[in-house]
């Protein structure tokens, strides 16, 4: 393995996904450097979430391949990818609604702790007796800034911003080296957004080079604040990649965004 592949944590080769006649993701090549923070932007329906689903293995790609840490994971099931170190949060809050927030986080840590195996002792001993899980749960809750008072409330009763933070906490629990955040500020009020952004920045600061983050985001101020590089998708194709400043002035990008608005107007 040469040094070049070592620096690239995720590489997609001409990855394509078709639903019937619709091509959601079309020949996308992406290389993500280890430890970087990238954002994927694009108009609605440009295939961002599908792209995430392809990387996490929820959907099998129609064509193309995905390399993670130099290993081909194109056909690995989702749970194996999670074991390898890919983790994600969801656009629509996707937690265990009737378990407590604490339980939600503990489950995500436990997944990494058990290493995908089920031993007889795991059926008989108490989950509460495993101290490592206990401590790490508090640790992660602290990093993302979850309210410790509300940790033992069923997750469905938490306010929206707390649920979004819980979502990030669960994604962190599997000890990922690549964290995919799908619109972490979706559906939030203006006052709540900075809380989540701070949480993301805190996470990034805490793990530094060990954690690579890919974001999907709509709110441009959030994008500009967090990301080092931006990838633009439109109609399933990658149309631009570069520094935030470059992207702002890129003609294709403007075309894609304005073009779509025109269509909407008609």
């Amino acid at each position: 393995m040469n040094s070049a592949t070592n620096d690239i944590i995720l590489q997609t080769n001409k990855i394509t996904k078709k639903f019937g006649g619709l091509t959601a993701v079309n020949m996308v090549d992406v290389e993500i450097e280890r430890g970087s923070v990238k954002t994927i932007i694009g108009p609605n329906g440009s295939g961002k979430t599908t792209f995430f689903n392809l990387i996490t293995g929820v959907l099998p790609p129609t064509e193309g391949s995905i390399l993670f840490n130099g290993k081909d994971i194109t056909n690995s099931p989702p749970h194996q990818r999670s074991q390898h170190g890919i983790s994600r949060s969801y656009q629509i809050t996707n937690i265990f609604p009737y378990l407590t927030a604490f339980e939600n986080i503990r489950l995500s840590i436990q997944g990494h702790y058990l290493k995908g195996k089920i031993k007889l002792s795991d059926i008989i001993r108490r989950a509460g007796d495993i101290e490592v899980l206990h401590n790490e749960t508090y640790g992660i809750a602290d990093i993302v800034g979850l309210d410790p008072v509300r940790l033992f409330v069923p997750a469905t009763l938490l306010p929206h911003a707390e649920q979004r933070k819980l979502e990030i906490a669960m994604a962190l629990g599997t000890k990922p080296s690549l964290l995919l955040l799908d619109e972490p500020t979706a559906g939030m009020s203006v006052e709540e957004i900075p809380e989540v952004i701070d949480a993301i920045l805190r996470v990034k600061e805490r793990f530094g080079k060990d954690l690579t983050v890919i974001l999907v985001e709509h709110k441009m101020d959030v994008v500009m604040r967090i990301s080092e590089e931006i990838i633009v998708l439109s109609n399933g194709k990658k149309i631009a990649q570069g520094q935030p400043q470059e992207i702002k002035e890129n003609k294709d990008v403007l075309q894609a965004y304005l073009g779509s608005t025109d269509e909407d107007l008609i």
């Binding site: 749970h79 969801y90 265990f96 489950l107 989950a127």
Partner: peptide, 26 residues
């Protein structure tokens, strides 16, 4: 069983299986 690590996972599967997979469980 219901309070064991295993039991917590199956409770979670009942609520949201896809998410459990994403957390690295088979």
């Amino acid at each position: 069983l219901s309070i064991s690590p295993f039991g917590r996972v199956i409770t979670a599967i009942a609520q949201n299986e896809e998410r459990v997979q994403a957390l690295g469980y088979n």
